[in-house]
Design a protein around this nucleic acid. Structure first.
Lengths: 133, 133
DNA sequence: GATATTAAAGACTCTTAATATCTGTAATGT
DNA sequence: ACATTACAGATATTAAGAGTCTTTAATATC
């Protein structure tokens, strides 16, 4: 029980794209090499991010992926939702409403998601930038 | 990405056992029927709880499972650990230490687990008891 | 001590989801 | 027109979860 590798790749890619000077495009080739992945597989992940509006894609020569210009503040939770969908960690096996056990689990999950929604990728990118110097 | 059904069954069984008057034993047969499961399958789940020391088992006639007498305060997290093992929701794909992304994910997970560690099954059992009346 | 009852252990099957690859198509710049 | 690159769909591979069956070991009752 863990977040998928796809989510992992997506997060790393997002930060990498944010570090591009001027928000310029990067091809899937380069992005895949960086993470030692096959371009075709990473492509599938990036398409999900594109559909979610977190990044923008331009096909053709000199094309690639870049951070969305319209959506500047993307959180960890945004990326997770884009890749994993709107999942929940726990569903009561017996489906009676108001299960006490389910309530507790849901509450804890909501709190975690709230925390991940407040963590912005831009902050991580900045931190990574200053760390490198 | 969600907690396994086994964890679900385990939590429900724990609460049920806590509601037994005098902490008496219940056979897997009865426990399985209650949750519409096969006894053999639930048996595997309960064995894990037994090995973790959360419940006690006695084979033979009039045997069954009952809440551990030595360990009175078991939390949601205890049960999760007993069934799922000590898993983490996120591991950085690139294994460089101090990955900023991993740090954020780990922190959120730890907070959630901290919350689940403070939620006691005995409280849920009490609540369920008073709710039934 | 024999017998019925019940948990434990192991091997095994089945299903599902994640992971990944390959091929062809559509879009874009030069 | 051509090279480049993202997108879509089909398909394979792998891993984990879910569940069953059979055998063995332990306990109580008679």
């Amino acid at each position: 029980m863990r977040y998928s590798n796809a989510t992992n790749y997506a997060l790393h890619t997002m930060v990498h794209l944010m570090l591009q000077p001027g928000g310029s495009s990067v091809g899937v080739q380069e992005l895949a090499e960086m993470q030692h992945l096959s371009p075709t597989y990473l492509s599938k992940v990036l398409t999900k991010l594109t559909k979610a509006g977190l990044i923008e894609s331009t096909p053709g020569a000199k094309g690639g992926y870049k951070i969305s210009r319209t959506k500047h503040e993307t959180s960890f939770l945004d990326v997770i939702h884009a890749i994993e969908g709107e999942t929940s960690l726990f569903d009561c096996s017996i489906h009676h409403q108001g299960c006490l056990i389910e309530n507790v689990m849901r509450q804890a999950e909501e709190n975690m998601k709230g925390e991940l929604a407040s963590k912005l990728l831009s902050d991580i990118a900045k931190e990574a930038e200053s760390k490198q110097k």
